[in-house]
Amino acid sequence: MSFAHRHLLGIEQLSPADITAILDLAETYVDLNRQSAKHSDVLSGLTQINMFFENSTRTQASFELAGKRLGADVMNMSMQASSIKKGETLIDTAMTLNAMHPDLLVVRHPHSGAVDLLAQKVNCAVLNAGDGRHEHPTQALLDALTIRRAKGRLHRLNIAICGDIAHSRVARSNLILLGKMENRIRLIGPPTLVPSQFAEFGAEVYDDMREGLKDVDVVMMLRLQKERMDGGFIPSEREYYHRYGLDREKLGLAKADAIIMHPGPMNRGVEIDGTLADDINRSVIQEQVEMGVAVRMAAMELLARNLRGAA
């Protein structure tokens, strides 16, 4: 199995075969992670630095755990607190870290394209942990693995992505990945958060959630950022919940076995009904978190193989 990429910057650069390769390898790590002895040594001797220019607990913890389980030396750097405040540019920060010879750099940044820029300046493998509104490839991969395990396939499914599409890198990466794997995608949300340009990606755009959810296999909810709720994009939290919050009644329009997904963290009672999120018969939200660690282990192993091959 070959994975001809130096970095994992986005889903855009991956072929369907690449995606399948990552998911297949991730399956083996799902099994490993369920055993009591979870350790492997495929990254032993390698150094992984997590550079988060934007707050994240879940993604950073997931990457950290993935690296540690594979035997890497993992260091977390919260970039908000450090050199940025002193006026250092992104590229200087990258060059400084590069001089410490890391092997894997996991980066999250609030601006689209920042991780691509950084990847051009360093010698190690870079994993994009989310850049602005652009991409969040490991999230899309973990979502894909979750869907494949729940539905038995990752093609010819009707998948609805609901909520704040415009500002969401999760939506963008998922849209690209699920499109590449030949699924039908519907984007559901108020037109202020789902601009019509997204129709050009081959997705169907709905502003009526009830209509959009009809006969879908997967309902993927997105988090609504607090700062969008104050009348700028939507009138109020309660009106949003009424029209776009996922509850039993709206879910009833989807297929009877439709699964519910959410990248977390959830706003219960804003985009999703709390009890629905906890319904183990429908919700795969906890499984998504589990798949996250496995997918990140797989992605890092594939990149590390190339690193060792090049050495």
């Binding site: 855009e12 689209s112 394209g113 850049d131 602005g132 509104r133 652009h134 991409e135 890198r169 963008r172 601009p195 340009q197 997204f198 050009e200 990606f201």
Partner: peptide
């Protein structure tokens, strides 16, 4: 400029 390109690249 808003359009498919800006949407794909996630740019304001």
């Amino acid at each position: 400029t808003s359009g498919k390109f800006a949407a794909l690249y996630g740019l304001p």
